[in-house]
Amino acid sequence: MSATPYRTPVVSKVKLETILNMYRRGMRTDNRDLYSPRNLNVQVGVIEKANGSALVKLGNTQVIVGIKLGIGRPFEDTPNEGVLQVNSELVPMASPLFEPGPPDENAVELSRVVDRSLRDPKAVDLGSLVIRPGEKAWVLWIDIYVLDYDGNYFDASMLGVMAALMNTRVPDYEESESGEIIIKKDSPGTPLKLNKRVVLVTTAKIGNYIVVDPNLDEEALAESRLVLAFDEQGTVVGAQKTGSGAYSVDEFYRAVEISRSAAQVYFKLLDSALQKNQGG
């Protein structure tokens, strides 16, 4: 069951006016134009106990992603592939709007949008994660933890997932005589094989405007949001319209075009953030 949200923040009318007045002149309250995302900061390897991890700051939105590899069984219909599992938590520390408890519809939506945007374009080479076809395979757990929510956890989460996947190493293992797989702890392992990189681009529709990477105020004011997944070639590899509003066909195509350009900005931001992280 899904119900109309009842705990929505009240945004003052003067703030709405200020925001729309600034849009009219191509500006936003946090010092950027309509189509630019916020600053991106990425730290990788923040959780030594995970096989891959990243802490991402997109403006004030903070997301930590941890990747764990465990031994499991391939799905019956894909005996030659490892298992991809995506889980997200909108933990109550992140926002007064988040409540403790099992993942709600928003957390589940986030998990599933990230999951299919990775799965369908085969972003992770799941074939490389099979150990014994039909019997043993690596289970790749991607856990997304939204720590501080200032709008747009979709884009921040996927940037974190990408940074963490690029930083993931598959542990070495050996087989015992009885056929058990024994993971070698503290082994160097091998880098996880990725086929392609993917980003999510969220745009919000506020009045007649489409803006990229909405902050919390903008999300509260938005009639609706469009989340599009792109690979580096600009192919659309996933999509989700989210929010109670609707798009006219013209608005929709405009949002798609705007998002497609923004995707390339995200790839560049991710590369430079990772470079900075390496240098530091």
Binding site: V10, V11, S12, K13, V14, L16
Partner: peptide, 10 residues
């Protein structure tokens, strides 16, 4: 009365 002061007003 509630048409004179609305949610979102300061």
């Amino acid at each position: 009365p509630f048409n004179y002061l609305h949610v979102g007003d300061f």
